[in-house]
Design a protein around this nucleic acid. Structure first.
Lengths: 339, 339
DNA sequence: TAGGAGGCTGTTATCGCTAATACAAGGGCA
DNA sequence: TGCCCTTGTATTAGCGATAACAGCCTCCTA
């Protein structure tokens, strides 16, 4: 290691006071005389003293650290969420330990265990699956403050996130209002039990008296632009009469858009495209993409506030609360009536 | 808090062994009889024991944590870097503490101090400025392992990053080879002393016997698509005869591309565009964008390896090394001869 | 002048764990 | 039979900080 950090003891021997006095002085206790406080503070500065947060944590039993688990930070919206959370936590004096699950439940479990071992004061988790939450519920039951960044009303754990069910519904309603009847869906969420977007899609179709045709669904290989491109290719190869497509993320939507360009389909005339998250790249795409907004600031602010609230709840955690923020559909050029 | 975690002591009282025996048993010491090891391990599992990493750190004097400071995670390439670093560190048994400086030196300093206080074993820093590194040099001098993710040969601190000077040179050479003579530059790096891209640009112009015309430079308001859009607008308003433009990031390049679309310039015939980082959105843009690649995996792997090497250097840190990885120019449709 | 009340500072214990050392029991060897 | 060594477990100290409590002054008051 070699890192030679000054300790309270070093300041103590240097100034002749006891370790405890030094500690009190540096924390500005009123019980320490002004003169000695100054001496001690000066000595601390001279030695370039920084408190050992590890030692402090051991006795105070709080680390002022929270753990953030994301599936993959490659999704631009999760990126913004991560950054916003880090900033807000930093303002509140908390540090952020960061882990990614890569969408794999076992990695998620490992990350949570690691955070527990590191005694984080709480966790923010964007779960792989919105259904299988038992491992998380168990940790919450053990008294750990946890807030999920996505989930469903019956999660049994606190959730602060976007109402993607309603978002999916709004998107499809919009396409139906435009006159579309054959609406494709690029969404891999079903595979993992993240049914919200699909549910919204289906409900809107239901209300319009349309049947939910599996020929219009495709699961992208990855949540990337390339994945959207390939998914679009697959959908079109089926000859399913699709005139509009809803993609689970803007990255997928951009891939779909690129496919239409390469195959000389006009957007929105020949194919309407709607995405999720409202990222900047979608806004500035060749055809600006209609998208279900992700209210990053609102979600992160509420999620962090809720988590801090849980941390401050001295004895027992309050009942779990699910807060789903209504998603606004930002209509742009990529969606309009067919033909 | 309420979190009731089992301690070694709890296992000790439950099994009748001493705390130390339990500790040794759980760490698989050969000095513990197999039978008692089993008893203890079972008790630990029954109690759902997780070692207190904080307490362990205090005595072992290593936290197995590294600090990662990024300017802003909104840049998609930094995002990928962050993720790759986290993954690689996790494989090696290290956790990642994460902070953003927002491009502000004071925040950077604060982040570094926080990491020191939290006793991280080392730090990876994408510095705000590639010039003013004194605060970082000082920390390194105190024995802290630090690797920068960008910087220059004379940094005085370890650096593992892309050779953006050479990248800028290659990009401009390519445009010159295409026959362009009036090449714009969208780059805010100069303001902060990050001159590498500009240096490469200038050297290429120099070699071609062209003068470096300030009318061709613009500093974007932000490193966003919108920032690129506005920067392009500004450049074009000057009537400077520009036929090609080099943008410091692909986000900026995408903004520039969008501007040309809205103003019915053809790319590359009327305006060639080259970016940096080679993000997926650039690859799948309306006109796929020529870009200087950022070798994420290579940079992160080397940077992490170097950092771990520094951490393992028991007594004193070795001489600082600067490793700049040659950047490959990925030529796509957005660049070709003028007209 | 004695006794108490404050004002300051020092002592001791503790957080959960590890490392160094101590010690008890049993076995091998002379 | 006695001694030493090995094996297995317990004791003690200490990581760097905080917290509770214990003193020692000095000064004021009765």
């Amino acid at each position: 290691m070699g890192r030679s950090t000054a300790r309270l003891k070093d300041i103590a021997t240097r100034t002749g006071f006891s370790v405890n006095t030094v500690s009190l002085a540096l924390r500005g206790s009123p019980r320490i005389a002004e003169g000695t406080r100054l001496t001690i503070v000066q000595a601390a500065e001279a030695l370039n003293y920084l408190p050992n947060h590890i030692a402090k944590s051991l006795v105070s039993r709080e680390t002022r650290t929270i753990g953030l688990v994301l599936t993959s930070i490659t999704n631009p919206i999760l990126t913004r969420v991560a950054q916003a959370i880090e900033l807000r936590l930093a303002e509140l004096g908390y540090s952020t330990l960061f882990a990614t699950s890569n969408g794999r439940p076992d990695e998620e479990i490992k990350a949570v265990e690691m955070f527990r071992s590191r005694q984080v004061d709480g966790m923010l988790i964007y779960p792989c699956s919105h259904r299988e939450l038992n491992h998380i519920r168990k940790v919450r039951a053990a008294g750990y403050p946890i807030v999920l960044l996505a989930g469903d009303a019956d999660a049994g754990v606190d959730v602060v996130g976007m109402d993607t069910r309603q978002g999916g519904y709004a998107a499809v309603r919009h396409l139906l209002d435009c006159g579309h009847r054959r609406i494709g869906l690029i969404d891999g969420g079903k595979q993992r039990g993240n049914l919200e977007k699909y549910d919204g899609y289906r409900r809107a179709l239901d209300e319009a008296g349309l049947t939910d045709d599996p020929a219009l669904h495709v699961v992208p290989v990855a949540h990337s632009v390339a994945g959207g491109f390939d998914a679009m290719s697959e959908l079109m190869a089926r000859g399913n009469g699709m005139t509009a497509v809803l993609a689970a993320t803007d990255s997928l939507a951009l891939g779909a858009l690129r496919w239409t360009q390469q195959h000389e389909l006009r957007v929105p005339q020949d194919m309407a495209i709607v995405g999720f998250d409202n990222i900047e790249f979608a806004q500035f795409a060749a055809t600006p993409i209609t998208s279900v907004d992700y209210a990053v600031d609102l979600v992160t602010e509420r999620a962090v506030d809720r988590l801090i609230g849980l941390i401050r709840a001295e004895d027992s955690l309050p009942e779990a609360e699910v807060m789903l923020i209504e998603a606004e559909l930002i209509v742009r050029e990529s969606s309009a009536e067919p033909r």
